[in-house]
Design a protein around this nucleic acid. Sequence first.
RNA 1: GCGGGUGUGGCGGAAUGGCAGACGCGCUGGCCUUAGGAGCCAGUUCCUAACAGAGUAUGGGUUCAAGUCCCUUCGCCCGCACCA
Length: 801
Amino acid sequence: MMYNPTEIEKKWQKIWDDENTFAASNNSDKPKFYALVEFPYPSGQGLHVGHPRSYTALDVVARCRRLQGYNVLYPMGWDAFGLPTENYAIKNHIHPEIVTKNNVARFKSQLKSLGLSFDWSREVNTTDPSYYKWTQWIFIKLFERGLAYKKKMAVNWCSSCKCVLANEEVVSGACERCGGEVVRKEKSQWMLKITEYAQRLIDDLSTVDYPERVRAQQLHWIGRSTGAQVRFDTTAGDPIEVFTTRPDTLFGATYMVMAPEHSLIEKWSHQLKNVEEVRAYQAEATKKSDFERTEVAKDKTGVMLDGVRAINPVNGREIPIFISDYVLASYGTGAIMAVPGHDTRDWEFAKKFGLDIIEVVKGGNIEVEAFTDCETGIMVNSGFLDGLSVEEAKEKITNWLKEKGIGESKVNYKLRDWVFSRQRYWGEPIPIVDCPKCGFVAIPEDQLPLRLPRVENYEPTENGESPLASIHDWVNVSCPKCGADAKRETDTMPQWAGSSWYFLRYTDPNNDKELASKQAISYWLPVDWYNGGMEHTTLHLLYSRFWHKFLYDINVVSTPEPYAKRTSHGMILGENGEKMSKSRGNVVNPDEIVKEYGADTLRLYEMFIGDFEKAAPWSSASIRGCRRFLERVWSLSENIIPGDGLRPQTEAAFHKTIKKVSEDIENLKYNTAIAALMALLNTVTDLGGITRQEYRVMLILLNPFTPHITEELWELSGYDGRISESQWPEYDASKCIEQMIEIAIQINGKVRSRITVPADIQQNEAISAAKADPKIAHAINEKKIVRELYIPGKIINIVVK
RNA sequence: GCGGGUGUGGCGGAAUGGCAGACGCGCUGGCCUUAGGAGCCAGUUCCUAACAGAGUAUGGGUUCAAGUCCCUUCGCCCGCACCA
């Protein structure tokens, strides 16, 4: 019989559906295992070959765990709010709801064709009112606890999406999604206080199993730095507060710099002799985009405030104050003390403006460049700090500042609060009413969900308001608290809202009383293994950790962290090694691969393609090798030879393969697991066939990777029940050892010959056997043997002179 | 600049300090075939007719033994980037 993947794949997909084979139970005596992949955004382009890499990898884990006796939850859903859908809807005059429905249907049928063992009865969709009811509920809880607030501030504005962006969504000055130019805009926005969780987001990274690159990226993004906040008095009376990580260099502070937006400048305007010049510089700075302002190689610019000077608290020296855009209003206090001797930026600025540069740590040459790498240096020109190490000086000066009441130690984070409003239609409405008397009022919980109104026109407006703002009967409401005329918030939530808690909903997807029952959450959480893309490290992954911690604080979830283990797959590139994209013309469509080779071949190939964590180029030639392998597994069913159990000559090979495949699946080494299975097939083929029991083991080991063909061969071979309900084989370590082993013999570390000896041979016997080998005997000849080593089972090395 | 990776055949890639190149692709030769983008067998790091050599980006070191550990230099990828 021929291997016909199209036929058997359809057959088994239907059976799994009909029999609910992969449904997880919230009540089970088995140990639980929660495997999670990032749910996709159902785009109009359909599934990309990159999606199955992640989905198959965790499908392998999920299927393997089921065979190992776990109660496995492996769910799937749709992260369906978002701009592309809205833009498509605008362009084609179809409601986003319809677009979403169509895209979801297409994605779902594509995913089903891959034979992924999702529990489809738990499917969720973030755009479903019964889902976003709870997204809104969480927002209200955040609001009630002061973690959601509205603030007028400079925001990142994507001029193409006509929408604000979070800091995390700006990539080198451009919009993360569309690449459009990002400019600064003053707007009143809903914000979430993620900064309040900064320290816990750092601390708890040590309690979870994340790849180093993910951990490092999050730490860096949160950007904790310790130092001191110091107050400098000024001749104008108002002090300037600065943050510094180097309080030890205070004696070297020869000028100060404030961000152009700093509020003191306005206050001092009447005392400044060069107000015009200052105003001009401020205007220039606001006009610049973020990208221009943060260009690194850029020359330092600035204006000195003429008329106000600061006083260095350690020596009473009067120093000038500048404004410059190299100081950011949004970090620290928006002002710095400049120590040009020991900070590169300050040094450049000082050189340009002819300011004093004082060496306060010995060791560098401050005439040539700032001496920044000076943590081990000794203090000089620093009064009572002279002679101390940098570390001692830090401590002494901080204590001194505290005693004098002019400063104290301080921790700062680069992380900013999360800009949470979007001026768009296709998102969750923010459930807040703005009442002239009561201020912002959350709508009562029993009125959730606050549904998106049906509208004719959902195009963004030029003035930066949400399309919802023009729907008068929706906007104008009475205040839920006092009944007065009030207005609804018309912005919607960002794309990241729904995905910040979706993994909780899977545990109890139809609950209309709670986002999920406490019981279901405590049973399933934390997620045991979460795989997803690196691109979400400082977005979704960080956001969802924040929300989870908040839900932990209000006693909705029972674990401080949502994911016990995170892994990250590499991208699948086009055949030319470049990122797949329509414009490059190197896109591979998974549907066509399934049609030509079958889903099992696609799955196997994507797992075999290379190191799971690294990017790998697609190869339409290599995939044929995977199909060939499956053909050989198929025809092996017609080559069953008599015999019971494992044969003596295959026993070690099988036990070793069971061990290798089991371990490799745990360690993301899918490629070598498959290589081991290929090698096992070669072994039995060389022996002329396979016994029934051997074939059974081989099929189970292969089942997580290629579920359809193994299910079919299982049935054809007449084994009991379904392979998906069978048991994962166990290996016996003592049986992994071959009876006879080949050992290499080295002379002075170079391999000169090999001998085959019993595995349990003793050192002296092994060495005598080695010396008896003619090549070795010849090589030793009359030389003096200095040393003889036998590393059991591995190598013999004879050192001669 | 900072952080995280990474460098091995023609290609994707294997190798708890112990036989470098597993497994697959491709390629070469053969068998089978009317035919082959099918199948089977053999071979395939480089140099060599063969023996012998050389070989894991670079230069050094540790070791009986180094792709693997330590130091140097170089290249590439990803993230962050005037964060005081």
